[in-house]
C-alpha cells in the first residue's frame, strides 16, 4: 500500500446529515460495543461526502467515544476509504492475477495514455479518478472494472470506451 497518513482538513466542522444520523443510531443497536461502529461510521461519511476528511475522523471518534487515533488507524488501514476527494467517476481497475492474465494492462494503459489518468490521481477537470485495486472477486469474467461501485466485466478497451461515452 502507499502511505495514507496525510489527512485533508476542510477547516469546516463535520457532522452527519439527518439521514446518516438516523442510520448511525439504527446501527448502534446492532453491536454490543460502540467501537464496532467505526467502520460503519466511516462508510456513512463516505456515502455522505464521497470521501473522509480529517474533521470527519475526529467527529466519528468523539461521537463513538473512542480515540481519534483508533479511527485514524482504521481509516488508513482500509484502503476503500477515500482520504481525499475522488473524481466524479471513480474507476477501479483490478490489477490482480486473473485480470492481469486477461489483459487488465491494456485498460490501464488506455486510461493512462488516452485520458492521462494516473492511479491515485484525479483528472484536472475533476471528472475521473483512477485506482488500481486488488482482486474484485470477479475473476471468471476478467478483466473487471468498477465504476462508482458498479461492476463491468469482461472488459476491453472498446467496451471501456463505450462505457465512458455513455456517461453524461
Amino acid at each position: 500500500m502507499s502511505d495514507r497518513s496525510e489527512l485533508i482538513s476542510t477547516g469546516k466542522p463535520f457532522s452527519f446529515d439527518k439521514k446518516r444520523d438516523a442510520a448511525f443510531e439504527q446501527l448502534s443497536k446492532r453491536y454490543p460495543t460502540r467501537e464496532s461502529l467505526i467502520l460503519p461510521a466511516l462508510w456513512l461519511t463516505q456515502e455522505q461526502e464521497g470521501w473522509v476528511c480529517q474533521e470527519a475522523i475526529a467527529y466519528i471518534a468523539d461521537r463513538i467515544g473512542t480515540f481519534a487515533s483508533k479511527v485514524y488507524e482504521a481509516a488508513t488501514f482500509y484502503t476503500m476509504y477515500h482520504l481525499r476527494p475522488t473524481g466524479r467517476y471513480h474507476i477501479c481497475v483490478c490489477r490482480t492475477l486473473s485480470c492481469w492474465l486477461r489483459g487488465k494492462q491494456e485498460i490501464v494503459d488506455y486510461l493512462r495514455n488516452e485520458l492521462s489518468l494516473t492511479p491515485g490521481m484525479v483528472s484536472e477537470d475533476g471528472r475521473y479518478s483512477l485506482e488500481e485495486v486488488e482482486c474484485l472477486g470477479h475473476c471468471g469474467s476478467a478483466p473487471v472494472v468498477q465504476l462508482n461501485g458498479e461492476f463491468h466485466e469482461d472488459m476491453d478497451v472498446e467496451k471501456l470506451k463505450a462505457l465512458l461515452a455513455s456517461l453524461q
Binding site: 497518513s5 489527512l7 475522523i57 481519534a68 488508513t76
Partner: peptide
C-alpha cells in the same frame, strides 16, 4: 487511557503517528 498514539497504514507502510491536532 488517553490513546493519542496509533499505528496507521498497513504492510511496511505502517507507522506510529498521532492524529493531527491531538
Amino acid at each position: 487511557k488517553t490513546g493519542e498514539l496509533g499505528i496507521i497504514n498497513r504492510s511496511d507502510d505502517a507507522r506510529v503517528n498521532i492524529f493531527p491536532g491531538r
